[in-house]
């Protein structure tokens, strides 16, 4: 008998606490696979957020630091400056990265801090039970927008990749999704590239992963995956928003 499928080495044996149908598990796996593929587990340090992924420090087998809410890019900056030869990544949700931690996000990006940021956007605060996120869609019903997100009152969702792409600093920005096999395979490629960029000292790479939250969206897992296609992706188009190296290469060719 041969092994045809196994858990990545970069994940521990701890049982995940995520809800049924939540795509955090897939994204954890993709990060771990990238770490395995690049053989960097021994020198990788991850920074966990506050939010649903708060206990990510138990799931990744590499060294881990738990950051205060929103501060993961600052903590990662400290780690990377102290240990430039190690690989540093943050794993953050939309409330953490795009609300309370917006300043740290923008400034780490503009410094082109050589770190990898995995940004999980599921348009809601999951851990605290389903409140409006900075990325909740217009009209989206949440515990704190019970009549639907009113853009006249709470403003519009923040499109992080588009926003950061205006900065000269960041190396690489891409938005992916994990709601079907094709998208998952593409997300894996993007996440791996974000780590490779760091190994090659290219700088700040952020992968925004459109993710689902069936529990707080009030849907079944398959309805939630369909909702990503119907509502999320039209508002948050997938694709590469910035790739400084590719841009340079094409300029050289031209």
């Amino acid at each position: 008998m041969s092994i045809v499928f196994e858990k990545p080495h970069a994940l521990t044996d701890a049982a995940l606490h995520y809800c049924p149908g939540c795509t955090h598990g897939i994204i954890h796996r993709l990060v771990a696979e990238a770490i395995d593929d690049l053989k960097i587990e021994g020198k990788t340090v991850g920074v966990a957020p506050v939010g649903c992924a708060v206990m990510a420090y138990n799931y990744f087998a590499c060294d881990m630091v738990e950051a205060a809410h929103g501060r993961a890019p600052a903590v990662a900056t400290g780690l990377k400056r102290a240990m430039p030869d190690n690989i540093i990544f943050t794993y953050q949700g939309d409330g953490d990265l795009a609300s309370i931690g917006m300043a740290e996000t923008v400034h780490a990006a503009t410094r082109n801090e050589n770190i990898t940021v995995i940004f999980v956007n599921n348009a809601i605060y999951g851990m605290t039970g389903g409140q409006m996120a900075p990325t909740s869609l217009p009209g989206q019903v949440t515990q704190t927008s019970p009549y639907g997100r009113d853009v006249n009152v709470c403003g519009y969702p923040i499109k992080i990749c588009e926003l950061l792409s205006n900065l000269d600093g960041p190396e690489y920005l891409e938005r992916v999704a994990v709601n079907n096999v094709k998208n998952v395979k593409n997300a894996k490629r993007a996440i791996k590239k974000a780590f490779e960029n760091q190994i090659n000292k290219k700088g700040f790479s952020l992968i925004e992963v459109i993710s689902s939250c069936p529990t707080n969206w009030g849907m079944t897992p398959d309805q939630a995956l369909a909702w990503i296609d119907e509502k999320m992706i039209p508002y948050y188009p997938l694709g590469v928003y910035k790739d400084k190296s590719a841009q340079k290469d094409s300029e050289v060719k031209a």
């Binding site: 501060r71 600052a74 400290g78 780690l79 400056r81 102290a82 300043a103 740290e104 400034h107």
Partner: peptide
């Protein structure tokens, strides 16, 4: 490393990062 952080909040969290790495900060 000298880094002028974007805020005092970011600065102390950078300190937290370096301290986690076991270096004087």
């Amino acid at each position: 490393t000298f880094l002028q952080a974007e805020s005092e909040i970011a600065a102390i969290n950078m300190v937290y990062g370096v301290a986690s790495a076991g270096k004087r900060v």
